[in-house]
Simulated scan of single mutants.
Amino acid sequence: MHKWLMTCVGMILLTSSLPAAAVDVALTTPVSGVVKTVLVRQGQSVKKGQKLVVLDDAIFQARVMEAEGSVERLQADAQEAERDLKRAKELYSRAVSSTTELEQAQVRYSRTNGLYKEAQARLLVARKNLEYSTLRAPFEGTISKRLAEPGMVVSAELQPATLIILSK
């Protein structure tokens, strides 16, 4: 049997080259965590998108909340920096302030907007990791083998543990 590693629908899948009628696909999550619930049993038929395994998502939810807070704070900072830049441009155009003050406002505006975009990116990653804490069936099939149990620690390192084997 020839095996290779492949990424599909955000999950790491180990696919073996077997006859088209009997392809087993080993499924795991791309994030580390502790198995909270296993929602399937061996021999069970599943539909595409059906939940199979749920990791404890408390840490993932907390990271989303933390990232949302950073986005809100930095959005307010960016709005303030934009107002300051407009004010600095106005004062500079009336020769009330110096070039240095205008440049400082421009730098603050650029820096703050950069930090805001970084916070938005961290929020996207946190939301995606929360989504990945639930293993879903990538296609319709039958559970060939259930290896996951509640309390099991899943590590998304180089060789993540197989949680479910699904047959097409």
Rank of each mutant, 00 (worst) to 15 (best):
residue 1 M to P: 15
residue 3 K to H: 15
residue 3 K to Y: 13
residue 4 W to S: 15
residue 5 L to K: 00
residue 6 M to F: 05
residue 6 M to Y: 05
residue 7 T to C: 05
residue 7 T to R: 06
residue 8 C to D: 13
residue 8 C to F: 14
residue 10 G to N: 08
residue 10 G to I: 11
residue 10 G to A: 07
residue 11 M to F: 08
residue 11 M to Q: 14
residue 13 L to C: 14
residue 15 T to L: 15
residue 15 T to N: 10
residue 16 S to P: 00
residue 18 L to Y: 13
residue 18 L to E: 13
residue 21 A to Y: 13
residue 21 A to H: 15
residue 21 A to V: 14
residue 22 A to E: 14
residue 22 A to Y: 15
residue 23 V to L: 11
residue 23 V to N: 06
residue 25 V to W: 12
residue 25 V to F: 09
residue 26 A to Y: 01
residue 27 L to W: 02
residue 30 P to M: 08
residue 30 P to Y: 09
residue 30 P to W: 09
residue 31 V to R: 02
residue 31 V to Q: 01
residue 32 S to F: 07
residue 32 S to L: 10
residue 34 V to H: 01
residue 35 V to T: 03
residue 36 K to P: 02
residue 37 T to R: 11
residue 37 T to N: 13
residue 38 V to G: 02
residue 40 V to W: 04
residue 41 R to Y: 08
residue 42 Q to K: 08
residue 44 Q to G: 01
residue 44 Q to F: 04
residue 49 G to N: 05
residue 50 Q to V: 12
residue 53 V to L: 09
residue 55 L to R: 01
residue 55 L to H: 02
residue 56 D to S: 06
residue 59 I to C: 00
residue 60 F to T: 03
residue 61 Q to P: 07
residue 62 A to F: 13
residue 64 V to L: 07
residue 65 M to I: 03
residue 66 E to R: 06
residue 67 A to Y: 01
residue 70 S to K: 15
residue 71 V to H: 04
residue 71 V to F: 03
residue 76 A to M: 04
residue 78 A to R: 08
residue 80 E to F: 13
residue 80 E to S: 12
residue 83 R to L: 13
residue 85 L to F: 12
residue 86 K to M: 05
residue 88 A to R: 01
residue 89 K to P: 01
residue 91 L to F: 15
residue 91 L to M: 12
residue 91 L to Y: 08
residue 92 Y to E: 10
residue 94 R to M: 15
residue 98 S to Q: 05
residue 99 T to K: 12
residue 99 T to A: 11
residue 100 T to L: 07
residue 101 E to P: 08
residue 101 E to M: 06
residue 102 L to G: 05
residue 104 Q to H: 09
residue 104 Q to T: 09
residue 104 Q to N: 11
residue 105 A to N: 06
residue 105 A to S: 08
residue 106 Q to W: 10
residue 106 Q to C: 09
residue 107 V to E: 10
residue 107 V to T: 12
residue 108 R to L: 15
residue 108 R to F: 07
residue 109 Y to C: 11
residue 109 Y to K: 10
residue 110 S to E: 14
residue 112 T to G: 03
residue 113 N to C: 10
residue 113 N to D: 06
residue 114 G to L: 12
residue 114 G to W: 07
residue 115 L to W: 00
residue 115 L to M: 08
residue 117 K to N: 11
residue 117 K to A: 14
residue 117 K to T: 11
residue 120 Q to M: 14
residue 121 A to Q: 06
residue 121 A to I: 06
residue 121 A to Y: 15
residue 123 L to K: 06
residue 126 A to S: 06
residue 127 R to V: 03
residue 128 K to E: 15
residue 128 K to C: 02
residue 128 K to Y: 12
residue 129 N to Q: 11
residue 132 Y to P: 07
residue 132 Y to I: 03
residue 134 T to C: 07
residue 135 L to G: 01
residue 137 A to L: 09
residue 139 F to E: 00
residue 141 G to M: 08
residue 141 G to K: 09
residue 142 T to F: 14
residue 142 T to S: 07
residue 142 T to I: 14
residue 143 I to A: 02
residue 143 I to K: 03
residue 149 E to W: 15
residue 151 G to M: 09
residue 151 G to Q: 04
residue 152 M to T: 03
residue 152 M to G: 00
residue 154 V to Y: 04
residue 156 A to Y: 05
residue 156 A to F: 02
residue 157 E to I: 13
residue 158 L to F: 10
residue 161 A to D: 02
residue 161 A to Q: 07
residue 163 L to F: 05
residue 163 L to I: 04
residue 164 I to Y: 04
residue 167 S to G: 12
